[in-house]
Computed example of a mutant assay.
Amino acid sequence: MALILTPEHISPLTKTHERKSFDCGHEDLNRYLREQARQDAEKRVAAPFVLTQPGDPKVLGFYTLSSSIIPVSELPEDMMKRLPRYGQLPVTLLGRLAVDRSAGGQGVGEFLLVDSLRRSLEAAQQIAAMAVVVDAKNERAESFYQHFNFQPFQKTPLRLFLPMAQIAQLFA
């Protein structure tokens, strides 16, 4: 069955979404969605968004967004020179992104990433964020993000960022 991948099928996580059968192959991400994501949403420490299909509450993929800060010293030198001389800068953290195995190989990860970037850009028009930051789970995840032009931080392995200016160009 081909999935329908439209922004209308990504929504904030609610009690009606079926999360128990979600399996992305990483138990910590499965557990997070099943046991912690709703609490994080209620406490406003993360905003989980889920992909479902019309008429089916089963979660096929999800991501979380939250506000964060980064030390300016972690950025590449050429970028540091162009930014204000603050010790830290505001960013949007793409904390988790996972796809259920049943939806693997259908472009769901890329679709969720693009949606998260679009939401981050929209939010940055109201609340400042100079980039989207991700903490890649492993080298495979790091390669996924680098494919979409995320750049590595200088001092933190597997931590990458995509400047908001580049994200704006994607949606221009």
Rank of each mutant, 00 (worst) to 15 (best):
L60Q: 07
M79E: 15
P54C: 08
Q53F: 00
Q53I: 05
V72W: 01
S67D: 10
T52N: 06
K43W: 02
E77K: 15
A47E: 14
K43F: 02
F49A: 06
P48C: 08
E42W: 04
V72N: 09
Y63T: 08
Q39K: 11
S66R: 11
G55F: 03
E74R: 12
R44G: 06
A47H: 10
L75Q: 07
I70L: 07
S68W: 03
V59N: 07
A46L: 11
T64K: 03
K43C: 01
P57R: 11
L60N: 03
F62S: 11
V59W: 02
L65F: 06
R44C: 11
A47I: 05
D40I: 01
G61K: 05
L75I: 14
T52V: 11
P71Y: 09
Y63R: 06
V50E: 06
G61A: 12
E74Q: 15
T52I: 13
V59A: 08
E74Y: 07
F49V: 01
T64P: 00
V45F: 08
P71W: 00
R44F: 07
D78Q: 15
E77L: 13
I69P: 00
P71V: 12
V59E: 07
S73E: 14
V59Q: 11
F62T: 06
M79I: 15
S67E: 09
I69V: 13
D78Y: 09
P76S: 14
Q39Y: 03
P71G: 05
L51M: 10
M79V: 15
E77T: 15
P54T: 12
